[in-house]
Amino acid sequence: MLEIIPGSYLTVTPYGAWRAVARADDSIERRALLAILREAMSPMLSAEQARAWTGEADTETALAPLLQLQESACLEAWSAPKMAPVGTLESTLPVLLGALSDSGQAVLADSMGFCLAMAGYPSETGEALAALGADILSVAERQSVALAKLGDHLLDGWGNVDAAGISGLSFWPMHIGRTRLALTVSGRPRFNQQAFADLVWALYVRYGTI
C-alpha cells in the first residue's frame, strides 16, 4: 500500500528498524517506531493510536510523522496484521543473525559480554567476539560526549579494517529500550534484509519495555 490510512496494520521496515535502534534519540518519529515494535502483532492504525504513539493531541499533527516515516521507507501498511517472529529467542535469533552477513557469521551480545546468540562461528570464537563487542559498547558510552561533537561525521558502527580501509569485521551498537546490545558481523553487513527487521522486532517484544 502506498499510503497510511486508518484501519491498516503497520510494520517497521528494515530501514525503519535500523533508525529505531542505531541511536537513542527521543524524536517523535523514533517514539512511533518503538511503539509499533513493542507489539507482538502489527497494530492497527487509528487516530487514537497515532496520538498515543506520537504524544500529539491533534490527530492531523499526529499522523504527519507517520506519513513521513512511510515516505522515507521506515513503515509499511497492510490490510491484515503480521506477527513478530514466533518461538524463543534462543531458537529464532541464530537463523536471523545468519542472514545479516554475506558470510553467514554474526554474534549478538549484551553490554556485559554475554553471548545471546551466534551464527556461523565456533562457540569459542563467538564468545570472544561477544566480549569484544561489549568492550566497544563501553568505549562508545564513555566517549559519547566526544563522539557527539563529530556531528554529521558520526557513524553508527565500528570496524576492524585492513590497510585499504576495508572492514572484515564490524560492530554495531543497538539500543533496545534501556538495553544496549552489540551486533558483530563478519564480512559485508546485510541489514537491508527482512531478517534485520524481524530481529529488531523480536528483541523489542522481549526487551523493549525493560
Rank of each mutant, 00 (worst) to 15 (best):
W78P: 04
L169M: 10
R51G: 03
A62I: 14
L132V: 09
V139P: 00
A24D: 15
T13E: 08
T88A: 09
P81H: 00
G208C: 05
R31S: 13
L183M: 11
T13A: 01
R23Q: 14
A52F: 01
Y121S: 01
M118A: 11
S111G: 09
A182M: 15
P43V: 11
V200C: 15
G168N: 08
S103E: 15
G16H: 08
P189A: 08
A22E: 08
S123K: 14
A73N: 12
E39C: 08
M118K: 08
S101R: 04
L129Y: 03
W172L: 10
L147F: 06
W201I: 01
L181N: 06
L75E: 09
L33S: 13
A35I: 02
M118Y: 03
A47T: 08
S144Q: 14
W78I: 03
E124M: 07
G120A: 10
R30D: 05
A77W: 05
D135P: 04
I136H: 06
L96I: 12
A197H: 15
T11L: 06
A109L: 04
A80K: 07
I4Q: 05
T13F: 08
L155M: 11
G177Y: 03
A24H: 13
D156N: 09
A106C: 11
S8P: 00
G87K: 12
G104R: 07
M83G: 05
L199W: 05
T92V: 15
A84W: 07
S123Q: 10
I176R: 04
A52V: 05
D102P: 03
H153N: 07
L181P: 04
A64R: 15
A24F: 13
A77P: 00
L183D: 03
A17C: 12
G87Y: 07
M41S: 08
E90S: 12
D135N: 12
P81R: 00
T11H: 01
N192R: 02
G126I: 06
L108R: 01
L100W: 01
G133S: 02
L155Q: 14
A32V: 00
R30Y: 12
L89M: 05
N192S: 13
L2S: 14
R188T: 09
G87W: 11
I176F: 04
L154E: 14
I4M: 07
L169R: 12
A130K: 02
